[in-house]
Design a binder for these strands. Structure first.
Lengths: 201, 201
DNA sequence: GTGCTAGGGTACGGAACAGTACCATCTCGG
DNA sequence: CCGAGATGGTACTGTTCCGTACCCTAGCAC
C-alpha cells in the first residue's frame, strides 16, 4: 500500500473524528462512532493513534492551530487609513471567531477544560490574545505618530474587541441565531467609529 | 418521616447533583456519582426524579433562573448620577457573569446545547439579554432628558456591555486566571468613561 | 508461486452507566 | 407497640465504550 493511501486513511480518520467531536463534544465522542463512519477495523485506528485521548487530542490541537491562524498573521504590512485598518481587523476578527469550527473548538475548550487544562490557554493566546497583541502594536504606532492618544493601550485594545464582539460570540456559543452579516458589519463599524472618537488625538 | 426531612433529602440530592454537574459537565455527570456523594439508595433518587435527564435538567433550569437573577431585578429605582449608575450596572453585571456558578452553567449551556436546545436561549435572555434591555431603558430615559444623544440605543447598550465584559468572561470560560478585582474595576470604570464620552449630548 | 505486511471484520474482557428488583431497616402515625 | 410507607444496600439486566486478540483477505516484493 502506497504512502498516499496510508495518509488518506489517516486523514479520513481525522476527518471523521472531527465530525464526531463537533457532534458529541469531547466527552461524548467515541472511537466506536468514528469507526462507524470511517469504516474498517478498530485496530487500524489504534495503529495511527495511541488511544482515544491521542486521537481526539490530535484533532483538537490541530483545530486550535488552524482555526485561529488568521488572527496570528500580521496585517501590519497593509496598514492603510485608520478607519480602514480598524475595520479590517474587526472584520477578520469576527470572521474568525464566529466561524462554525471556531465556535465548536471554543465550546470544547470551555467545557472540557477539565482534563485538558492547557487547551483553553492555547486557544485564547493564539486567538483573542494574539489579536489584542497585534492591535496593541498598531495602536502604539498610531500613538507615536500622533494620530491617537491612548493611555492604556492594552486596555483600549481589549475594549475595542469587546465592542466588536458585542454579544455575538456569546450568542454563537449558546447556539442562538446571529444577525444578518450586514447588521453585524454595521455594529462593527459603529464600534470602530466609537473607538476612534474616544481615542483620537 | 416528616416533610422537612423529605425536603432535606431532596435538596441534598440536588446539591450533590450540582457538584457533580460542575465537575463532570452535563454529559459526564452520572447518577452513580451523585449516589456516591449523597449516599443512600438509587431507588430514592429515582423516587424524586424521573430519570437522569430529569434530575440534571431540574438542576440546570434552577441554576439558570437563580444565577442571573440580579440582572433581571430592576435597578431603575435607584438611578443616581450617570457615572454612578453605569458603574453600578457594570459592577453588578461583572459580579454576576464571573461568578463560579454562572461560568459553570454557561459552560454547560454552551457545550450541551445539543440535546437541550432551549437552555442557551433561556440563559442568554435571563442574563445578558435582560441586562441589555434594562440598560436600554435607562439610556432611553437619559436620551429624553438630554443627558445622552444615542442613535441606536440597543447597539450602544450591547457595546457597553461588550467593553465591560472585555475579555474577562472569555478568560473565565476557558479557565484562565482573571486579573485582580481592583484591575477589573479599573477596566470597567474606563469603559464607563469611554461610553459617556461617546454618547454624551 | 511464496512470503510479508496492512487492513477488514468480528469477538472478547473489563469497566462504567441507566434503570429495576428485592429485601432489610428505619421512622412515624395511631 | 405496631403496621405502612419510605429508605438503605445490594444485586441484576442491558447497553455502551475502550482497548486487545484473532483470523481473514488483498496487494506488493522477490
Amino acid at each position: 500500500m502506497s504512502k498516499t493511501q496510508v495518509e488518506e486513511k489517516r486523514e479520513a480518520i481525522l476527518e471523521a473524528g472531527k465530525e464526531v467531536l463537533f457532534e458529541y463534544g469531547y466527552l461524548g465522542a467515541s472511537v466506536d462512532e468514528v469507526l462507524r463512519r470511517v469504516g474498517g477495523s478498530k485496530r487500524t485506528i489504534y495503529k495511527y493513534f495511541e488511544s482515544k485521548e491521542g486521537l481526539f487530542g490530535a484533532i483538537v490541537t490541530e483545530l486550535v492551530n488552524q482555526a485561529m491562524q488568521p488572527l496570528e498573521m500580521s496585517l501590519l504590512d497593509k496598514e492603510g487609513e485608520l478607519y480602514a485598518t480598524l475595520e479590517a481587523l474587526g472584520q477578520t476578527y469576527l470572521d474568525v471567531i464566529l466561524r462554525e469550527e471556531s465556535v465548536a473548538i471554543f465550546r470544547i475548550a470551555a467545557s472540557e477544560g477539565i482534563g485538558h487544562p492547557t487547551l483553553g490557554k492555547a486557544l485564547f493566546e493564539s486567538g483573542p490574545g494574539a489579536a489584542v497583541k497585534r492591535l496593541a502594536a498598531y495602536l502604539h504606532h498610531q500613538n507615536k505618530i500622533g494620530v491617537l492618544a491612548i493611555k492604556d493601550i492594552d486596555l483600549a485594545a481589549r475594549h475595542y474587541y469587546g465592542m466588536v464582539r458585542s454579544d455575538l460570540h456569546m450568542r454563537a456559543l449558546l447556539g442562538l441565531p446571529l444577525p444578518a452579516p450586514a447588521e453585524i458589519n454595521r455594529g462593527m463599524r459603529q464600534a470602530v467609529a466609537s473607538f476612534v472618537g474616544i481615542y483620537e488625538a
